[in-house]
Structure formats: C-alpha cells, structure tokens
Simulated assay, not measured.
Amino acid sequence: MRFFHPDNRSRSDEHERIYAVYELWFTVVDVAAAVSFVVGSLLFFFESTTFAATWLFLLGSTCFALKPSIRLAREWRYWRMGKIDKLAERERG
C-alpha cells in the first residue's frame, strides 16, 4: 500500500467508510475556515471589531493547517489497517 494512492479508499468497505468519515471532517474544517475568513474580513471594516477579526483570521489559518493533518491521519489509518491485515495473514498461513 502506498500513501495517498487513489485506490486506497476503495480497497474494502471499511476503507470506504473511513474515507467518508475523514472527508466529512475535512469538509467541516474547510467550511469553518471559509466562514472565519469571510466574517473576519467583514469585521475588519470597523475599527471597533478589529480584535475579533484578528482572532477569526487566526482560527481560519488554524483550520487550513488542520486540513493536511486530517488527510495524513486518514492515510496513516489505512497504512495501519494494511499492517494488521498482513499480520493476520501470517498468523493464518
């Protein structure tokens, strides 16, 4: 198994389920980042809300940093599943 190979998500029903769960989280983080930046941008129009806007930009940036971490976590989980499958095969054979 190779990291980030397109076939990883369809290796089994469990792989497809994992893919769906991680895609859901990826999308939630993506929307949170977008909302944070849009609202933060609007708040920068008013001097009185600049502090809140800055925090929203920090939150949006953090969300963007989470996105590759979510993908890496999914691939790591696939990799671990492959290792467990190989171990089970050795024990059987």
Rank of each mutant, 00 (worst) to 15 (best):
23 E>P: 01
58 L>S: 03
41 S>I: 05
7 D>S: 15
79 W>N: 06
59 L>Y: 01
58 L>E: 03
17 R>N: 11
90 R>E: 11
81 M>S: 13
66 L>P: 01
29 V>M: 07
26 F>R: 06
27 T>S: 14
26 F>G: 06
72 L>V: 06
20 A>Q: 12
37 F>G: 00
92 R>D: 09
14 E>Y: 09
22 Y>P: 02
7 D>N: 13
23 E>T: 13
20 A>L: 12
13 D>S: 12
1 M>N: 10
53 A>W: 00
64 F>R: 02
76 W>P: 00
14 E>M: 11
85 D>I: 09
6 P>L: 09
39 V>G: 00
45 F>N: 05
88 A>H: 06
50 T>N: 07
84 I>M: 08
33 A>V: 05
46 F>W: 03
12 S>W: 13
61 S>F: 07
24 L>V: 07
80 R>H: 12
33 A>C: 10
4 F>Y: 15
38 V>D: 04
5 H>M: 08
30 D>A: 11
11 R>V: 07
5 H>F: 11
29 V>L: 07
91 E>T: 12
39 V>R: 02
57 F>S: 05
40 G>K: 02
76 W>R: 08
37 F>W: 04
1 M>I: 04
2 R>D: 11
26 F>T: 01
28 V>H: 02
93 G>V: 08
23 E>A: 12
32 A>L: 14
37 F>P: 04
33 A>S: 13
79 W>L: 02
45 F>E: 04
33 A>G: 11
81 M>E: 13
7 D>W: 08
56 L>M: 04
91 E>C: 07
34 A>N: 11
33 A>N: 03
24 L>G: 15
49 T>I: 00
67 K>D: 02
5 H>Y: 15
18 I>S: 08
81 M>D: 15
59 L>P: 00
83 K>W: 13
